[in-house]
Simulated assay, not measured.
Amino acid sequence: MRTAHIVVVTAGLSEPSTTALLGEQLRQATAGALDRAGIDARFTVISLRSLAKDITHHYLTGFPAEPLDAALKAVNEADAIIAVTPVFKASYSGLFKSFWDLVEDGSLAGKPVLLAATGGTARHSLVIDSAMRPLFSYLKALVSPSGVFVSTDDFGADTALTSRIQDAAAEFSQLLAWTLGGAKPSQQNQAQTHPGALEVTPFEELLRLNTAR
């Protein structure tokens, strides 16, 4: 099986950033899940904070600077995406939305996408289903059924956080394996590699899940 190219897009504005931290934890968990499935993976991490000026200039001039152009090409050529945003006013950040508005039409069609978000309080926990999922469904992405929301207090306090990240990454990785043409793992192999892993869901069922949410 060929190497899977996964792009991690994070929209954190601060340094250090809890959004970037969550993106890194999801990257590591995905790498581990893919390795257990016998799939090689390479990752490209895109921090939108460093591209904020280039994104604004692109809207004003119509031409992307080289760093932004490289980021957009990476998304276009990726096999799958991990997208992580901070939450402001009960939705994704303006910087996050501005980047995806520049992505070429059709470039996400059929690509597995794992959604994640960070927020100040658990009140924002519905943002993945209420805001992010509709956006990526509109972009025709194949959105992984489970996303990960983490509030500020969850880091270091939520004892289930690691498990939630690993479970979401395992689900996302099996979706990616299926889109790459990988064989469906047996229940015995799943129990030996990752007890919480799910069987690959048929494409038609995933489409139903995405349109129903």
Rank of each mutant, 00 (worst) to 15 (best):
E204L: 03
D154F: 01
V87R: 06
V84H: 05
L60E: 13
L51P: 01
R42W: 10
M132H: 10
R133I: 00
M1L: 04
A80L: 04
A183I: 15
A70N: 01
F96T: 09
D158R: 12
T211D: 12
T162C: 01
K89D: 07
L21I: 12
A183T: 11
E66R: 04
L206R: 07
D167F: 02
L95K: 07
S17D: 03
T30Q: 10
A109L: 01
L22W: 00
T19M: 02
S14N: 08
T118M: 02
E104V: 06
S125D: 06
A197R: 14
F99Q: 04
Q192E: 15
I128V: 05
L51K: 14
A83W: 12
Q28A: 11
G38N: 08
L48W: 08
S163D: 06
M1Q: 13
V143P: 08
E66I: 07
L126Y: 10
R213C: 06
L180P: 10
F172N: 02
D40C: 14
A168Y: 04
T179M: 07
E66M: 03
F63Y: 09
P134T: 11
I81H: 14
T18A: 12
Q28C: 06
L13T: 05
M1N: 01
E199P: 15
A80D: 09
G62P: 00
L114P: 00
A37F: 07
T193P: 09
F43E: 05
D129W: 12
F203A: 14
T179H: 07
H194L: 15
L34R: 13
F63H: 03
K89E: 13
D129C: 06
G94E: 15
T162F: 01
I128R: 10
V9Q: 03
L198I: 14
S14E: 09
D54M: 10
S98P: 01
A52P: 13
T30E: 10
T61M: 00
S125V: 04
G119P: 05
I39P: 00
A141L: 03
T30D: 08
H124N: 08
R2Q: 07
P185D: 11
G182T: 02
V103R: 05
L108M: 08
D35H: 12
Q25E: 13
K53D: 14
I39M: 11
V103I: 00
Q166C: 11
A65Q: 07
N210F: 03
G147F: 14
D54S: 15
S144K: 11
L161M: 11
L26A: 12
S137H: 11
G32I: 03
A71Y: 04
T159D: 15
L175C: 08
A131M: 10
A33R: 12
S130A: 11
G156Q: 03
L115N: 10
A131S: 13
H124T: 12
T201I: 15
V113H: 06
P16H: 02
L209K: 00
Q190S: 13
P67G: 01
S125T: 09
S151L: 13
D69Q: 10
G94Y: 14
L95I: 09
A109K: 07
G120F: 04
L72F: 02
F172A: 01
L176Y: 02
N76G: 02
A197K: 05
S91W: 05
T19G: 14
P145M: 10
E15V: 15
T44P: 09
P145I: 13
S186H: 13
L176H: 12
L207S: 06
K89P: 09
F88G: 04
H58P: 11
L34D: 10
Y92P: 14
T85H: 05
K111T: 04
A20M: 01
L142W: 03
V75W: 11
